[in-house]
């Protein structure tokens, strides 16, 4: 076992996958000599050269659109969007093109590529360096959405994503890049897409989240244990395909569900989880499905007081669970 940071898990896995498969290329803004603004691609340019690690112009639609073409003609691109906030110029290429290529061609063409993008708040990034954009894309059939919360999962899920034959959006919470460390085993393990994980077992309330919110939910569960409340925490890990069974199994056991997401509350991804629980496990519920989310303002504001107001926290999660446990 080796201990590594979340970003080192990403970087090392990219390098290992590029050694394994010469069809893999990395392209994006500053991914080359600089190694990416977060250094997630550091060292790849030196090892694999300018043909396979391509510094692009500031053209997000091109980064994704050209990746689609390259994927069609035998490469396996891993484009990087520098911040998830800047993915919007590529929205049309992702939603109208990558997501639909297989369906619209009746399986004549596929689009194997993994779009990496750092997302999330809590890093003084303000409105345009903090967004959670997963709900826009999780709505779209044809895309797979992956958000790891540990170095172990980052490695296993990135391998699965790159080897997948369909377009994957791989979102990395930038606050976790250097703040989260974890053990990773040697060897070429994968974490399959579409498998949630019970990361803490409990009996009274189920908390469901992804990304940084899983770390916060685990901290909340520690606080709640001191209050005598037993909390089960599920890391869904892949938003699409979603492992509904693991969520429903847990909720049927605890009878209470709290969904946590950092994005704006209204129409956020967690609302779909709440809807699935309501549709499928209504008879097993002993309380309302609760959500702990970011507020409905158009972005994370900058000043530290405002950012703290925005971000869901372990304390806010614990508070919601206490209310839920009281039902």
């Amino acid at each position: 076992m080796t201990v590594m940071t979340y970003i080192e898990a990403i970087r090392s896995t990219l390098a290992e996958e590029m050694r394994r498969d010469p069809a893999i290329i990395v392209l994006g803004e500053d991914v080359g000599k600089k190694g990416g603004v977060f250094l997630a691609t550091d060292g790849l340019y030196d090892e694999f050269g300018a043909d396979r690690v391509i510094d692009t112009p500031l053209t997000e639609s091109m980064i994704v659109g050209a990746s689609i073409g390259a994927a069609v003609n035998g490469l396996r691109p891993v484009p990087e969007i520098q911040f998830a906030d800047f993915i919007m110029p590529a929205f049309n290429q992702i939603v109208s093109e990558a997501a639909r290529m297989r369906y619209r061609s009746n399986n004549a063409f596929g689009c194997p590529m993994t779009i990496r993008a750092p997302y999330g708040g809590g890093v003084h990034g303000a409105l345009y360096h903090s967004q959670s954009v997963e709900a826009f894309f999780a709505h779209v059939p044809g895309l797979k959405i992956v958000i790891p919360s540990t170095p172990y999962d980052a490695r296993g899920l990135l391998r699965s994503s790159i080897r997948d034959d369909d377009p994957v959006l791989f979102f990395e919470h930038k606050k976790m890049y250097r703040s989260v460390r974890g053990e990773v085993p040697a060897g070429d393990y994968v974490v399959p897409l579409g498998e949630a994980k019970v990361v803490r077992e409990g009996s009274q309330v189920t908390v469901i989240g992804y990304g940084l919110m899983v770390q916060y939910a685990l901290e909340a569960a520690e606080l709640l244990e001191a209050d005598g409340i037993s909390t089960e925490v599920i890391d869904i890990r892949t938003l699409r395909p979603l492992d509904g069974q693991t969520i429903l199994d847990s909720v049927r056991k605890t009878g209470k569900a709290c969904v946590v997401y950092e994005d704006n509350r209204f129409g956020g991804y967690g609302a779909e989880i709440a809807a699935i629980i309501a549709e499928e496990a209504f008879d097993d519920l002993d309380g309302p499905i609760m959500r702990v989310t970011g507020p409905d303002v158009p972005g994370v504001p900058y000043a530290h007081t405002l950012e703290e107001w925005f971000m869901p926290s372990p304390d806010r999660i614990a508070e919601a669970v206490r209310r839920l446990a009281a039902y």
Partner: peptide, 10 residues
């Protein structure tokens, strides 16, 4: 037009 460009890159 971008897809063609990516095909040509490959």
């Amino acid at each position: 037009i971008l897809h063609a460009t990516g095909i040509a890159l490959a």
